[in-house]
Structure formats: structure tokens, C-alpha cells
Design a protein around this nucleic acid. Structure first.
Lengths: 172, 172
DNA sequence: CCTATCATGTAATCCGTTACATGATTAT
DNA sequence: ATAATCATGTAACGGATTACATGATAGG
């Protein structure tokens, strides 16, 4: 039974806690080098969302007695079940690309060939940079599932680097 | 000079009006067969956002005297300028993939090989279906810019169809 | 003429972002 | 010691989604 109150970020939190993250800052660090590359969000959500999940009984919260008095989270049995159910349940939402560059190209009738080429070069550079990041982290990834997602990222960035290169070479 | 109050959807509206859409329903129809494939949003935004743009002086609104009394929108000079400025201004935001399937794969340590294969087959099917859509509309597209974006969509869907096919064949 | 669906919106809610704020730790 | 930055939040706002609602048009 999936809970309609849970958003993708809810499951990102549950997933990271399941992987061993215990504090919000911990999740922030972990996300910034992994899942954050393809599903980005501000760090404030990593403080707000665990509180929500505690309310729902999916996380336990303990407070450090000393020092920073951090909130330390752990999965409850219900939380573990919610994560497992979500993983197995078929996904209905269509994958979305949110790419401002593509949006500009789409509505670019008012641009000259030079301006389109400039846009394309900038986009190519963006994708090339991200590609380099993925190539760097590809080696340090241990989990096979994480590796598979990095591979998806590599393929994606290669596809779009090449796409924009072609657009830059021969503006539509 | 870019207006910080304008969101991507604002420019989608401005762009569609520039392309000749005049009413919210018109935009809805147009979007559902084009830009909506890679930047989706509910139709209610196509009723709310034009009102906002009228307030900002970027759209003109006229009301039909008869029948449905639809609101008919057109670009003001300021609106045309805002769109043109946005097109030329370099994009800063990183492109994002929002793909629940990838998220599940990423956190899929709790899944068996069979379950991962099932997820992969479902995702492959989703991408294959979308690929078929793009192949169908590729012919009917007239604008070269729209054609380029459809091509990006084709490349993207081919990449991910193949990716998930491999995952289904050999789960990580 | 009646019904189904098309077309056109409004309202409420909530998620996500932005901005702000401040206590703890580390470096110099 | 002091400054810098790391770490940990909170508050407010607004955009986006969901749900609701109802008037027009077309098909039978």
C-alpha cells in the first residue's frame, strides 16, 4: 500500500537512511555526490522531510546529548516496508527532462543561426562537464545499482553532448 | 534584463502565444502534442499563468463577446522583448532528469535480481512507447527548431530503451 | 431533446525554493 | 583569540498540483 503523502524526496530520504545516512547533513553530503546529480533539491528539504517521516512513523529520531545535538534518524519497520513497497510497485509517472536549453531551442524561431549555435555550444559544454564528473565518480562507486545509474548518466550525457555538437555545427 | 518572477512555464506560455496560440485551451492542445512531452504541467497553469503575464504587461487579454467568452491573449511589445531576451541569455540551471525508475534502481539494494529485471522491462516499455510517439510526430513537425527537439527526444529515448534493455538482460 | 464530453475556469493545499539566522568547529 | 567556514536549522513565500465546478457544444 503506497502512501500518497510521500513524494520522491521522501523516498530519497528513506533510501539514504537505509544506506546508512543518519543525520540531515550526512544525507546532504551523500546526495551532493550521487543522487543529487539527477534529482536535485535544496538542503532545507533534508531537514524538513525527515521530520515529516518521523510524524508518519517511518523514521525514528534521536537527539544527541552533547555538542551539536544533532537529530539522528533511523528506519522504523514501517519505514523499511514503505521503501520496499515503493521499490516493487510499478512506476506510473513518465520520466521528465527539465532542460531549459531544449526549451529555448524549441521556441527559438526568433533566434538567428549564430545565436542558436551559441546556445548549442554552451549546452554542449554543460553536458561535457557533467560527463566528466560522471567519468570521475564511476570508478569510486561500489554498489552495482549506483554504478548502473552512473552508467545511465554517462550514456545520457554522451547523447546530449553529441546532440548539441551537431546543432552547433548545423543550426536547424 | 530578465525578470525573476518569470518561470519556465511563463516562457512556455509566451512562446506558444508567439507561435500563434491565442487561448488557454489552445495552448493546452498545442502543449499536449509538443512541449508537454519534455516539460509537463497541469492545464490549470495555462489558465493561471497568462493572467499573471497580463498583470506584468507581457500579454494583452481580450474577452470574446459571444459564446464561451474566452480570454484571447496576444503578445505585447514588452512580452515579445522578454521572450527574445530569455532566448539569448545564457542558461545557468543544470538540466535535470526526473526519472522515478532510475531512483528506484539507485536505491534498489533491497530488490532481487528478478525484481530489478521487472522494473527494467517496465521502464524499457515506457521509453519504447514514448519513442514510438516521437517517431510518429517527427514527420508532422514543420518548424526546424521543433524538429531538432524531437530529434533530441528520439536520441534520448533510444538511449534509455537500450539502457533498460541491458539492465533487464543482466541485472547489476 | 438529452446526454456525454469538451472547454474553461477557480480554490485549496502543499511542496519546494529562497532567504535568513546562528551555533559549533577548524585554521591561523 | 579571532576569523572563517562548516553545520544545522527555521520562516516565508510562491508555484505547482489536485480537486472541484459548471457552462458550451456535439452526437445520438
Amino acid at each position: 500500500m503506497s502512501n500518497p503523502q510521500l513524494t520522491p524526496v521522501s523516498y530519497v530520504v528513506l533510501g539514504m537512511v537505509a544506506e546508512g545516512a543518519t543525520t540531515s547533513y550526512d544525507m546532504k553530503q551523500k546526495a551532493s555526490r550521487s543522487v543529487g546529480y539527477f534529482w536535485n533539491f535544496p538542503h532545507s528539504q533534508l531537514y524538513a522531510e525527515p521530520a515529516h517521516l518521523v510524524e508518519l512513523g517511518l523514521l525514528d529520531e534521536e537527539r544527541e546529548a552533547e555538542g551539536r545535538r544533532r537529530r539522528v534518524y533511523s528506519l522504523t519497520p514501517a519505514g523499511r516496508t514503505a521503501l520496499a513497497d515503493w521499490l516493487r510497485e510499478p512506476t506510473s509517472e513518465q520520466p521528465q527532462i527539465r532542460d531549459t536549453g531544449l526549451l529555448k531551442l524549441f521556441f527559438g524561431d526568433g533566434m538567428s543561426a549564430d545565436e542558436i549555435a551559441a546556445l548549442a555550444r554552451a549546452q554542449e559544454e554543460t553536458h561535457r562537464a557533467r560527463l566528466a564528473v560522471y567519468e570521475t565518480i564511476a570508478d569510486s562507486v561500489t554498489s552495482p545499482n549506483h554504478a548502473a545509474v552512473v552508467r545511465a548518466g554517462l550514456l545520457h550525457e554522451r547523447t546530449f553532448t553529441e546532440f548539441w555538437r551537431e546543432v552547433a555545427a548545423t543550426p536547424p
